[in-house]
Structure formats: structure tokens, C-alpha cells
Simulated assay, not measured.
Amino acid sequence: MTNAPTIRKVFQGVADRHQMYRMFDRHAGRVHRREDYATALYAGEWFEIGEAEHDYMFAVEAPLWIRGSMFALRQFLTGSVTSVFFALRIDDAIRYFHGYCDLSDDMSVERMRLAIIERESRPVRAMTREERLEHIWSSTAEPYRGYADYRWPHASRGRRTVHFFGGKLGSVPKLLEVMTDEEIAAKLPVHLRYLPDAAAA
């Protein structure tokens, strides 16, 4: 039996339609896209969208299934992973979310639903380090993010990178996962920069 994927928020705020489409395939530029098994890369990712985007996706094609306030797309992204859209009541308001669920796991959709409610019901706005890094990755334009290739040490290859201005060196890539707190703060928008740290759920 394989372990359930980590359920993770990958964007702060409500994604508009352009942002939503960009995040549908956040990992399109990975080095071995045609060869790798990407279920673990996508399964468990989620972010908030607006009501208009939720309704638009419902109208695009007939859903694979509808369960109460949730529906799944019939077009699978990779393996048994597909988009599931949620309309959830949180703190007396209906909010809308997109998540990637591995439908080979019967409990994946329910785990995703509960994780979103738990994360968005926290009384104090806060972000984990992982959420900060995922937001930076999601919001960085494609020319300024990428993957470590053959020019990197073997142990780093395939890991995500983001570009920083390096003075006379121009734009230089750095591994996303080893960014310092100062570098993370510099990459975040001002309204997210000073949120308190949150323990991972």
C-alpha cells in the first residue's frame, strides 16, 4: 500500500482564471516530463478559486461525478489524478477550491475536503514555510523558475529553482527548498511577507 500524498496549499488568496490555469500544471517544465510518474507530484495540491471560476469549470464539460457540493473532471491529468472542485461552507461563507485527488484512493477526496476546511478555519492568518515556498513557486513567472538540470550537482538535479538578481552576474537560479527567510520574504508580496509562522497541519 502506498502512503497518502501530503495535502498542501499551493497559493495564498483567491486565484483568478489566469492564475488558476497556470496552476493546473505548475510542474510542466520539469526535466523528465515525458518519462516520469507524476502522481505524487500533483496529488494533494489545492488552492482557492472564485465562484465564477468554479462555475465555469463545471460548465466546460460533463463532470466525471458530482457528490453534493463537489465534482470531478473526467479528464485525468496523470495516472488516476484529476481535478476535484469544492464548494465549502467555512465560517458562514461559501468558498470555492480546486484540488488534485488520486481517485485510485477511495478516501482521497474526503481527506482533501477535511484538510481544506481545517486549514481555512484557523482563527489567525498564518503560513508555514512550505506554504510560503509553494506560493513563491506558483506566482513566479515561467522564465524565472525552473528545474536543476545537468549543470547542477547530481543530487540537486530535478529540484525546483527560482531566479534571483545577482548583480553583475544577472539573474541566477537558486534551489527553492534552500531559500533563506530573507530571500523568501523578498519574493513574497508585501501583504504576505509578515504573516506569522504556522505549524504544519
Rank of each mutant, 00 (worst) to 15 (best):
P143R: 04
A200P: 01
W137E: 08
R129F: 01
R17M: 09
P196K: 09
E142W: 06
P189A: 07
R129H: 09
P173T: 11
P63W: 08
V162E: 08
E48R: 14
L64R: 14
V190S: 09
E182G: 00
A87I: 01
R157P: 08
K187W: 00
K187Y: 01
M1R: 10
R67L: 12
H18F: 09
F58W: 13
R113H: 13
V31N: 13
L195F: 05
P5E: 03
G158S: 09
H32A: 09
A115F: 10
S80Q: 09
A38F: 02
P153C: 05
R17E: 12
L73T: 11
Q12A: 15
R160W: 01
H191P: 06
L88M: 12
N3Q: 13
F165A: 08
D16I: 07
H154W: 09
F76A: 13
V10A: 03
D36R: 11
T6E: 14
T180N: 02
M20N: 13
T2H: 10
S108C: 13
V81F: 02
S138Q: 06
L133G: 05
V10E: 04
I116H: 06
R132T: 04
G68S: 14
K187N: 10
G146D: 06
P63R: 09
G68N: 15
E53K: 02
V14C: 10
R125D: 14
R67A: 15
W137C: 07
E35Y: 12
R8W: 00
W65D: 12
T128P: 06
Q12R: 04
E177G: 03
D92P: 00
D181M: 01
S138H: 06
S139H: 11
V178L: 03
S121G: 11
W152L: 13
A198M: 12
H32M: 10
D92T: 04
Y56A: 14
L133I: 07
E110Y: 03
N3R: 11
W137R: 08
G50V: 06
D55T: 07
Y96F: 15
M179C: 12
Y150A: 15
A185I: 02
A15W: 02
F85D: 02
M127V: 13
H191A: 11
S139I: 00
H27C: 07
L103W: 04
E35N: 11
A186L: 04
Y37C: 07
L195Y: 02
H32V: 02
M20V: 08
K174Y: 05
I66P: 00
P153N: 05
V31Q: 09
V109C: 13
L188K: 06
V190L: 12
V60L: 15
G68C: 02
M107E: 15
Q75H: 14
M70A: 07
A15V: 08
K9T: 02
R30L: 10
A28V: 15
E130H: 07
D181W: 01
R22I: 01
